[in-house]
Amino acid sequence: MKTVATNPKEDLQAIRDIMERSSKFLSLSGLSGVFAGFCALAGATYLWWSILGPNQLNFSQALAGGLFTTRLLSVALTVLVAAFLGAVYFSYRKAGRAGQPLWTLTTRRSLIHFLIPLATGGIFCFVLIQGKMEGLVIPASMVFYGLALVNVGKFTFGELHYLGLIQILLGFLAVYLVAFDLVIWSAGFGIFHIIYGALMYHRYER
């Protein structure tokens, strides 16, 4: 018996689809995570090979020494910019494949919620360096980055929430294991990004 012209099942499916698409930024590609991870590992390897290893320093000591500050920070910044550009590129590709524009309401919203804690962390790290508290720069960068992920997790894939929690935990660990600060940083920004990105790619993009 056909009582209504609408197809309730299709209607509900469409509603669910639009609700998700309009509230979540789903163009973020898992490959962004993998790429960011490799950028971080490359940066860490370079720092180890060129500065930390030969001088037998950990990251905090090298930063505190003052001699390498500019180089350390430019490598960190390069990693950040490269990872960000990678995220833009892979998201652009993913959006293009899905036939959707990249610069949408949800993209802007995600970006803002991601950047507020991240920029706060960046400024805070700068303050730490000025205040000669270099030992806290790596922990602070990881904790604030983790908070940024937890925050943006509400507006994109929820899994980012857990990646954020891992970064926060590793950040606190780095406070106590200063000697291994670069190793912990590489684990957080490198290894866990790659694992996360690969999982996400496997789950949503294959």
Partner: peptide
């Protein structure tokens, strides 16, 4: 249905965003 779906999960949305979505 589409318009309402968007407005249920977003506090407010402008015309162009709706058009795009």
């Amino acid at each position: 249905l589409g318009i309402m779906s968007v407005l249920m999960v977003n506090e407010s949305v402008d015309f162009n965003a709706l058009k795009e979505l």
